[in-house]
Amino acid sequence: MQIDLFIPCFVDQMTPGVGLAVTRVLERLGHTVEFRPAQTCCGQPSFNSGYWDEARSVAIRALDVFEGAQAVVGPSGSCVAMMRVFYPQLLAGTPHETRALDLASKTFEFSEFLVEKLGVTDVGARFPHSVTYHDGCHGLRELRIQQAPRQLLRAVKDLELIECDEAESCCGFGGLFSVKFPMISTAMAEVKGGSLARTECEYIVSSDPTCQLQLDGWFSKKKMKPRTIHLAEVLAGGDA
């Protein structure tokens, strides 16, 4: 299958390893992976701040960039939700509405693409560590992804998956919310980070690089041990 990578701006600039890991997993499964360098950002920062006109121009550009793609796969529940859920709302009633719905129908978050679209749960990975999974809110509630990443993790050799007691709680990132309301954002990180840390797992697995930024930033500041890792990096790791 021909797969187009959707590399969110944050991954492009700050965590390129995640993009490479996604590529590695998909190629290992025998698929052709493409990256269209014309892509930039999904427009979510402007959309969430209320600047819909600006977000709309970014969205229309993204429709052009991914024109003709068979499947668009991204390693972030949040950015995928922007394309799949919010583009059609943003472009409703415009000449671009149909194209937005079309792109929405073929855009997938990485874990759901593997499980729901490709029907794969065992990607042949080995990761000899205890992990807990952090649900990103956009993946969980906009895209309704909850089981796919867990199915994938359970199939990883030598991996132990332990659930935390605040699995469905937000880490407090929320984009610009994290710097406009830093005290609330940090309080939320305390709650979620505390719950994740109580599992005493070696790694916190996430499907959202910006949740990782928030949690790692807080753990590091608090000099706490756990570190996050992207699901793609777990699945790409140490072939069995």
């Binding site: 600039q13 700050m14 390129p16 993009g19 490479l20 990256f35 710097v179 990180a189 590091s220 500041k221």
Partner: peptide, 22 residues
């Protein structure tokens, strides 16, 4: 950035972006 750094660290930026690596 200040609001972020008061309560959270920020990792160093990687030398290359994904598009460069690709």
């Amino acid at each position: 950035l200040r609001q972020w750094l008061e309560t959270r660290d920020l990792p160093p930026a990687p030398p290359k972006s994904f598009r460069q690596l690709w």
